[in-house]
């Protein structure tokens, strides 16, 4: 890196009085220590779990979250090797009180269709549902039990996305309940490799969720 052209004045400190120099020295010390601590914390945050991070996990998290959180493991250690399709179906209730169940709607496929041949995909197409589902799986165990606040929020988030995209109802029939499932298909191995994998998709089917008024605010405004 070259120096700033033309602005460099050798010896900016030369003409300063002693008190002024002390102020500068104190400022320099604070700035240097802060920068060193910051870089140390960020390094420990992105580094793999190690002796230092295990012993100081709380202090590091306190410093980093929420504003300096970062994750640069792009497609690492291994890239995602499966396509996860989030699908939903609805139970509708007509004016006569009779209920019907719709077929499954594949919202991931809808996202995919909107991303295709798009130079600038929107975050609503590329990240919204994909990351909402990640959020759900990260905050639930295999028995679909939510872990605290985040678990509950992720359920409501998925439900609101789904209800919003389903559009509230059909032909005057309102959505009473929704059911969500994820269909995971492994990416077929390359034609030039001799690997084989399971071509059949795996299903993760959640229970029926009642749709409350709080889940409908977006559908109403669309």
């Amino acid at each position: 890196m070259e120096s700033d052209d033309g602005h460099e004045r050798a010896g900016a400190l030369a003409g300063l009085s002693l008190p002024a120099r002390l102020v500068v020295a104190a400022g320099a010390a604070v700035i240097a220590v802060t920068a060193a601590v910051h870089l140390g914390m960020v390094f420990l945050h992105v580094a793999p779990s190690n002796t230092v991070t295990k012993q100081n996990a709380a202090a590091i998290d306190d410093y980093i979250y929420p504003e300096y959180e970062q994750n640069w493991k792009f497609f690492a250690p291994n890239p995602l090797q499966q396509n996860v399709a989030v699908q939903a179906r609805a139970e509708l209730r007509g004016p006569d009180g009779r209920t019907t169940v719709t077929g499954w709607t594949d919202f991931t496929a809808q996202d995919g269709a909107e991303i295709r041949h798009n130079l600038i995909p929107s975050h609503t197409q590329q990240n919204e549902l994909r990351r909402a589902w990640d959020f759900y799986t990260n905050s639930h165990d295999v028995k679909e039990v939510p872990n605290g606040l985040r678990g509950a929020l992720s359920e409501q988030y998925i439900r609101r996305i789904v209800v919003g995209r389903l559009g509230g109802g059909q032909d005057g029939r309102t959505v009473q309940r929704v059911q969500v499932r994820a269909v995971t298909t492994l990416v077929a191995p390359p034609s030039w490799s001799d690997e084989k994998n399971e071509p059949k998709p795996a299903y993760r089917v959640l229970g029926w969720w009642p749709v409350t008024a709080a889940d409908r605010t977006e559908a109403k405004n669309r």
């Binding site: 890239p79 995602l80 996202d111 991303i115 798009n118 995909p121 590329q126 990416v187």
Partner: peptide
């Protein structure tokens, strides 16, 4: 090979 076959990342 894999990201190039992910629906969300293959416009």
């Amino acid at each position: 090979y894999y990201p190039l076959h992910l629906d969300y990342f293959s416009p």
